[in-house]
Design a protein around this nucleic acid. Structure first.
Lengths: 126, 126
DNA sequence: CTTGACCAATGACAAACGTACGTGTAAATT
DNA sequence: AATTTACACGTACGTTTGTCATTGGTCAAG
């Protein structure tokens, strides 16, 4: 598929917010940005503009305000990002990453239950 | 702990190679770089230099060749990197990332077995 | 000794990234 | 109506990152 330039860290954060909102103006994305990581309004604006020029989102003009919309699904971006990370940090082997995620921080019992369920379901599918 | 500047993608790849070698010259790292992602010799050199200035590795002179050594453990870098990714792409929730890792690519039966074992061990530890 | 063939270290540079300013326009307040 | 406030947009700038050219030193062959 159309190979886009990779997202930067900042762009990624804005992309996530836009996926949640489905469609939003700069202001709406800015408002959705969590207080403890609040980005400047113009920073959000720049990231959205760059996301568009990289082909990740599209925009239309509503009045005098641009409204943005995701063009690429989260799953796609997540896959590309995680694959790249696994290649660089774990030589392509994803198991050590999962191991880290399981061991490094404590999981709730509920988390563990859900993961077991996922594994069960994957096993059935073969 | 001493807060270092984050690693770039390229630096990360070199850091991983150096962890595997424990201690190595530029040439040794370059030779260890996989054929399908071969980096230029001088590129490896630059990354090692920057890793040192960022505080991730140290070096000593052996003859006229610098020998590098990791100063920061893989576990530390992995934690910082993964935490940052999870914050930006999943709003801090690690479960969706694990879910992606389990569902997006097929796991071998052996992988699944190992993951189950890890989960068992985590559950006991409470 | 000179030439040539490496090889290591540094310097340099364009592009990408994070951040923020200045300008213009619509809306609100006096 | 005049003035202030709010807001959107493009432009800009210092820094980091990816990439490579140049310089300088060591050794082997002629």
């Amino acid at each position: 598929m159309g190979d886009r330039p990779a997202l930067s860290k900042g762009e990624m954060e804005v992309a996530r917010l836009l996926w949640e909102l489905e469609e939003a103006s700069v202001r709406e994305v800015h408002d959705a940005s969590p207080d403890d990581r609040k980005m400047d309004f113009t920073v959000v604006q720049t990231y959205l503009r760059r996301l568009e020029s990289k082909g990740y989102v599209s925009s239309r003009l509503e009045g005098r305000t641009k409204v943005y919309r995701p063009k690429v699904k989260p799953r796609t971006v997540i896959r590309e990002t995680v694959d790249d990370l696994v290649d660089r940090l774990f030589a392509g082997d994803r198991l050590p990453l999962m191991q880290h995620l399981i061991e490094d921080r404590s999981l709730s019992d509920e988390d563990i239950r859900q993961l077991r369920e996922l594994l069960d379901r994957m096993e059935d599918r073969t």
